[in-house]
């Protein structure tokens, strides 16, 4: 047992090349923030007219998916750089 440990000390450890590390890190970085391509742009007035309906549908979907009551789901719209960001809060028990 001691002998195995002793010779293990002299075993050369294979150093990972920085290219391999970089590639792994790059994949993680890109996966985390892969943007979603816009396939359809909704005109502003159309969005404003239907915003309450959109909110209701999101609430319905979230409530069904996560099995929570509808009053525990809150949906808000915010504008950032010309895009509408839909913020959904779910209060789980």
């Amino acid at each position: 047992m001691m002998l195995v440990w002793f010779f293990g000390l002299f075993k050369r450890r294979k150093r990972e090349k920085s290219r391999e590390t970089a590639y792994k890190r790059l994949e993680t970085i890109l996966e985390r923030r892969r943007p979603v391509a816009v396939t359809e742009i909704v005109p502003k007035n159309e969005f404003e007219e239907n915003s309450e309906k959109i909110k209701e549908r999101i609430v319905d979907w979230v409530s069904d998916t996560f099995k929570v009551e509808k009053d525990r789901v809150r949906v808000e719209f915010e504008e950032h750089n010309g895009y509408i960001v839909i913020i959904t809060n779910v209060l789980f028990e």
Binding site: K17, S18, R19
Partner: peptide, 8 residues
Amino acid sequence: GEMLTQQD
């Protein structure tokens, strides 16, 4: 092996 390749 110290720089990302074209394929990467």
